Amino acid sequence: MTTSRILLRTASLDDLDRITDLHTQARTAYYQAGGFSEPELTSPEARSRRREMWMRALENDTTTVLCAASGGEAVGILAMGPPLDPDVDAATAGQLYQIHVRPGSWGQGIGSRLHAAFVQGLRDASLTTGVLEAWERNSRAHAFYTRHGWKPDGHHRPGPADANYVRMRLELSPSA
């Protein structure tokens, strides 16, 4: 699969179950890679909570949810919107809530396409800063974001398996 065959489009409620399943697969893969393999990752209750979270995101006017699709199959998702932490200035920053790529599609440029859409969303909104949180044991995500210019900003909060979520920032250079 090449990224030229990947269509990025705004997600709809029709995508809800595909998004929830993709999120579950990606989340399970990175938590297990970080040494956290609780049954909670794939339980029906956890899936139901994720589905509700995605439904709220899809129905929220301040959240943008994009699907990356190939051949009609969802292979990646992105959610972004205003910052969640009160110490982040919403007049200058937007938050990347989530990027997930189906584990079998990792390394094919899908995450980079979604990331580029996030950066374009910041620019379109005249924002200069992006923020996100990544679980500290998700080394794959940290390497991805570092390659794209993100840096930890010193803020963290507790996460599963005695590992924190680390907040990172991306400062955009002025566009030409």
Rank of each mutant, 00 (worst) to 15 (best):
F144V: 06
P160T: 12
W135F: 10
G121R: 05
H142F: 08
N138P: 10
W135E: 02
T128M: 06
F118I: 02
Y145P: 02
G130Y: 01
F144R: 05
T128Q: 08
T129I: 07
D162H: 12
N164C: 11
F118R: 01
P158R: 11
V131N: 01
R137P: 02
T146C: 06
L127H: 06
H148L: 14
H156A: 15
G159S: 11
A125V: 05
R137N: 12
G159Y: 03
V119C: 09
F144C: 06
G121C: 13
D153V: 04
V119P: 01
R157C: 11
S126H: 10
E133F: 13
D162N: 14
A125I: 06
T146Q: 10
E133V: 07
W135Q: 02
A163C: 11
G121T: 12
D162R: 13
A125W: 06
T129K: 08
K151Q: 15
V119Q: 07
A134P: 00
A161F: 14
S139R: 14
A161H: 15
D153F: 01
A163G: 08
P158F: 08
F118D: 01
L122E: 00
R123W: 05
L132E: 01
D153Q: 09
T146M: 03
T146G: 09
G121A: 14
H156Q: 15
H156F: 14
L122K: 04
G154Y: 04
T146A: 14
E136V: 09
A143K: 05
G121N: 14
Q120A: 14
W135R: 04
A143T: 09
H148P: 02
H155P: 01
P160K: 15
W135T: 04
P152G: 09
P158T: 06
H142R: 15
H142L: 15
A141Y: 00
P158A: 15
W150H: 00
Y145V: 01
G149T: 05
G130A: 10
R137V: 07
Q120H: 12
S139H: 14
R157I: 12
A125E: 11
P152K: 04
H148T: 08
T146W: 03
H156I: 00
V119G: 03
S126I: 00
P152C: 12
E133A: 13
H142A: 10
G159N: 08
P160G: 09
Q120M: 10
H155I: 13
Q120S: 13
G154D: 07
G154T: 04
R123G: 06
D153M: 02
A141P: 01
V119S: 05
